[in-house]
Write a protein that binds this DNA or RNA. Structure first.
Lengths: 141, 141
DNA sequence: CACCATGACTTGCAATTTGCAAGTGACAGG
DNA sequence: CCTGTCACTTGCAAATTGCAAGTCATGGTG
């Protein structure tokens, strides 16, 4: 078996939040879902995200999300075989989580941008986030 | 300085989702916020969650969340000094993210329970989650 | 045919981060 | 003095990340 991850095999508790985090609770999964929601389809497109996801991590996350039934992998051509990744209905429902994250980020982290899809649905809320004082702690030494 | 974490020092991109995940994008942070939202206040109360958070991880997450301005630590008594942790307004706004996660979990992961607060706000949606077939992959060998 | 190019990954490996167990420091009570 | 509680810290081994480089199938070009 691959040396990359075998974790998330069973739930930490029956709490809906904890169980959901068992699936997408890491720094990358939701970004992959974000990109798929925005129309990216292939491995190489997903690899080019602004956050520079490492290729082995992307392969691992796609595997996990596929296992969890959040996305679906399918070949769109043979010779040479090439794949497409797409969200399932289950995955598309993550859109609400993404939207909540965007709203929070736009409201509390100065200088952050919304997603294209989110922008359309966010319409009137919050101006272009005026770069200003961030109420974060002065950093403990 | 402590050997526990120094990461999350700068944003991976200006995307609101990515920036928010830089703060709460791990398996534990949102569970701590969940518990604070549900009324837990002290370190030892937080330590007793169903998911068994390791004590060093809890200490680290509280430090991070405090640095990020999501929670606030304050002494509620001297001699001996004892602390209370509470969400700031910024932290309370994470409630929407939690709610989205609960809704997704309840809808797509059989056998999961909602939070107390969420239950009140979730009222009519979805029955007590009828334990049934989970459309997850049959596990690649 | 030789050579370069894609697309989609895998492998190696060092640097972080987890997770578990045990230890510490400041008191309070008996 | 001994035991207990709260709030953490330390030590490590094990798991996960992140970076660079390699692989494999096939297609195109000269």
């Amino acid at each position: 078996m691959s040396p990359t991850t075998k974790a998330y095999e069973f739930a930490r508790s029956n709490c809906a939040v904890a169980s959901t985090l068992d699936i997408v609770g890491d720094k990358w999964s939701l970004l992959v879902i974000r990109d798929l929601l925005q129309g990216k389809k292939t491995y190489s497109e997903l690899l080019e995200c602004d956050e520079h996801i490492p290729t082995n991590i992307l392969a691992d996350r796609l595997r996990r999300l596929d296992d969890a039934g959040v996305i679906e992998k399918s070949a769109y051509q043979q010779r040479p075989v090439r794949f497409t990744y797409a969200l399932t209905a289950k995955g598309r429902d993550m859109g609400d989580v993404l939207l909540a994250l965007v709203r929070w980020g736009r409201k509390h982290i100065p200088g952050t941008q919304a997603l294209d899809i989110a922008t359309r649905r966010l319409s009137a809320s919050a101006p272009p986030t005026a770069r200003a004082r961030n109420p974060a702690k002065p950093r403990r030494e």
